[in-house]
Simulated assay, not measured.
Amino acid sequence: MAHTYLLVSDTGEPLPSASAKSLADAIAAETGVPFNWHLARHAFFNRAYAAVANLEDPNLKASRMQDLVYWGGWRDSNSLNIYTARARRERARTSIAIWGGAQRMDPLA
Rank of each mutant, 00 (worst) to 15 (best):
G101E: 13
M65K: 13
P16Y: 05
H3V: 09
M65C: 03
L60D: 11
F45M: 13
A50F: 01
V52Y: 01
L6E: 05
L15M: 15
K61E: 00
N59C: 04
P34V: 03
E56P: 00
A43Q: 05
D25K: 09
A102Q: 13
P58T: 07
S95M: 13
V69D: 02
D76P: 07
E56F: 01
A2C: 05
N81Q: 14
A20I: 00
A53M: 03
W99G: 14
S79R: 06
Y70N: 12
A87N: 06
A28I: 03
V69L: 00
W71D: 08
G32W: 00
S63M: 10
G12M: 02
K21C: 07
P34W: 04
S79Q: 14
L60P: 00
D76S: 15
T31N: 02
L60H: 02
L39W: 04
R91L: 14
D106N: 15
L55W: 00
R91E: 14
E90G: 06
A48M: 01
A29Y: 02
M105N: 13
I98K: 13
A20R: 00
E30D: 14
A28E: 08
A109G: 06
A51S: 12
A48K: 11
A18T: 13
V8M: 07
Q66H: 08
A87L: 09
G101R: 02
A87V: 12
A18Q: 10
F45K: 03
D106Y: 08
R64K: 15
N59A: 15
S19T: 11
A43H: 10
K21Q: 12
R75Q: 15
M105G: 09
Y70V: 15
P34A: 10
S77F: 07
Y5R: 08
A50L: 08
T11V: 06
R104K: 15
E30C: 07
S22F: 01
A97M: 12
F35S: 01
N81E: 14
S63Y: 08
V52G: 03
M1P: 09
A43V: 03
F45N: 05
V69S: 02
R104C: 05
L39D: 14
N54D: 14
E13D: 13
A109C: 08
S95L: 15
A20S: 11
G12E: 03
L80N: 06
A109D: 11
A40G: 05
I27L: 04
N46T: 12
L23C: 05
V69R: 04
W37D: 00
N46A: 09
V52S: 02
S77T: 14
W74E: 12
T84D: 06
W74N: 10
L108H: 11
H38F: 03
S95V: 10
S77P: 01
L6C: 07
E56I: 10
P107K: 10
I27W: 06
R89M: 12
R86C: 08
P58H: 07
L80H: 08
K21F: 05
A26L: 12
D67A: 08
A87D: 09
F44Q: 01
A97V: 11
A18I: 04
L80I: 08
T94C: 03
R41F: 04
K61G: 00
W99P: 03
K21S: 13
A53F: 03
V69T: 08
A43L: 07
L7P: 04
A29W: 02
K61W: 00
